[in-house]
Structure formats: structure tokens, C-alpha cells
């Protein structure tokens, strides 16, 4: 049982002239097995929340706490956060020229587990996970994200989720850019991991369509750098019908 606690988190980003405040006190607790959908307008700070938790150097935490089973995540390096069990599926996964997917996955797995995976089972695991995500075997020898289509990049993120087996995953718009088939395949991947490992999920999205495949236990409306309202899955339906107007006027 793992708990990720985000308490009154305040984050600013370095801009050319000054630091710009983006997160203004985020409170959120995610436990193993739970799925929290985060929905909110463009620019409300959803990716900032995801990056700040993962430790991206561009974002400065100016207040609040992030605890993973009581451990202070904010004191950990980016790699240590991943080793502690956090995973971020990025909205825009990064290309790494000259580094093959297979080398990358093996290096990451070794780093997370603290030892190299057993060769035979590892090769089988990678192959199996790739098949389940309908990724052609040739992706293993391609360079990380280089020349991948938008949808292929997202599948590759979920492939890592399956293989690295984190405790808590943040999925930042993993659904955007996916066609219906790919959305189903990716959602099934996430559900498989949830079932097998009891993964806790923070699922950032603009659309309810992914929530038909990945059932959220909680839905949070994210506006202007904080959680404006929380509810059950019915809240998502309401948001899709009504939009965010109600919250935006309230925020002014």
C-alpha cells in the first residue's frame, strides 16, 4: 500500500524576466489502486504539477510538500523519485538520438531494481509487453522516440509503465493524439498494470473518452493552479457538457 500526498504545493517556473507562479496550493492524495482523473483548461498547470512531482529542474517548488509513504519526495533527485516508485508518462516524450529502446529499457530497469534483470525472462517480458501494446518488434532497435508518431510515443510510455512497475504513475494526456483503437490498447495496458501491481494513477486528461476505459475513482477539476472541485466520475460527464466556465468565473 503506497500513498502519495501532495500538500499545499506551490510551484513557479523560471521565465526570462521573472519567476511566474503557476501552482497555488495543490492538495491531493493518491493511494495504491486508486485512479484520480485531473481535468482542467489549457494552461491551468496540470503538466506543471506532473513535472514538479517528477522533479523537472525548470520548476521551482516555493511551498508545500510531496510525500511518498511519508518520505519527502522534494528532497530526492529525479532518478531517486523514479527509484522510489514514481513514474511520469509525459505529454511530449523526448527523443534521445542514438539510444535504442531496448538499451534504454534495460538500463532503466536495472536502475529501478538496483540489479540487471535476468536476461531470459527480461527478453520475454519486453516482447510480451510490446505485443500486448501492438508495438512492432522492430521498435526495440529504434532510437528512443526518434521518428515515432504521436501515438507510438504514447504506447512507448505505457510500455515503460508495464516494465518498470512503479507504485504511482502520473499520465499526462496519454490519451491525446490517440485514435480509438490505440486508446483502447493503451487503456488496457494501464488497466493491466493496475490489476497486476495495484498501481495508483493520476490521469491528466481533457476528455472523458479515456475515462470510459480507465474508470476513475475521483475526478478533480484543476483551475488556475489548484484543485477547484473534486467528485466522482459523474463530475467528468458534467465537465464535458458544461465546460469550465463555472469555475473560471469563480476564479476571477
Amino acid at each position: 500500500m503506497t500513498t502519495l500526498e501532495i500538500k499545499n504545493l506551490q510551484v513557479s517556473v523560471e521565465t526570462d524576466d521573472a519567476a511566474k507562479e503557476i501552482l497555488r496550493g495543490v492538495d491531493l492524495t493518491i493511494r495504491s489502486g486508486e485512479t484520480h482523473a485531473i481535468m482542467g483548461p489549457n494552461g491551468s498547470g496540470k503538466s506543471t504539477l506532473a513535472y514538479a512531482i517528477a522533479g523537472h529542474p525548470k520548476y521551482t517548488v516555493t511551498g508545500g510538500e510531496v510525500l511518498l509513504d511519508g518520505e519527502n519526495v522534494l528532497e530526492m533527485g529525479v532518478d531517486e523519485r523514479a527509484q522510489a516508485g514514481l513514474f511520469l508518462a509525459m505529454q511530449y516524450p523526448v527523443e534521445v538520438p542514438g539510444v535504442t529502446v531496448s538499451n534504454f529499457l534495460r538500463t532503466a530497469k536495472t536502475a529501478i531494481d538496483g540489479e540487471a534483470p535476468k536476461l531470459r525472462t527480461w527478453v520475454k517480458d519486453v516482447k510480451g509487453a510490446m505485443e500486448a501494446l501492438k508495438m512492432d518488434a522492430s521498435f526495440a532497435e529504434r532510437n528512443v522516440n526518434e521518428g515515432f508518431s504521436g501515438g507510438e510515443k504514447k504506447r512507448h510510455e505505457i510500455l515503460q509503465l508495464e516494465l518498470l512497475q512503479p507504485k504511482i504513475a502520473i499520465l499526462d494526456e496519454t490519451d491525446s493524439g490517440l485514435d480509438v483503437d490505440a486508446l483502447k490498447i493503451v487503456s488496457e495496458g494501464v488497466n493491466r498494470v493496475k490489476e497486476n501491481t495495484g498501481l495508483g494513477v493520476m490521469l491528466i486528461t481533457h476528455y472523458t473518452r479515456i475515462l470510459r476505459y480507465i474508470q476513475p475513482d475521483f475526478v478533480h477539476v484543476f483551475v488556475n493552479g489548484r484543485v477547484a472541485e473534486s467528485g466522482g466520475s459523474d463530475l467528468a460527464e458534467r465537465l464535458e457538457e458544461e465546460g469550465y466556465d463555472r469555475f473560471l468565473t469563480a476564479a476571477v
Binding site: G55, V78, D79, A82, M90, V96, V99, T107, A111, L164
Partner: peptide, 17 residues
């Protein structure tokens, strides 16, 4: 950042890049 967010330490990540 991408590599380190997968648990790879900085020295190894630099070497990979």
C-alpha cells in the same frame, strides 16, 4: 531529464546521451 525520470542516474544518463 527524460532518462533520469526513468531511474537512470545522471552519470549513466549523460553517458547514454
Amino acid at each position: 531529464f527524460y532518462l533520469m525520470s526513468r531511474g537512470i542516474d545522471e552519470a549513466d544518463a549523460r553517458r547514454l546521451v
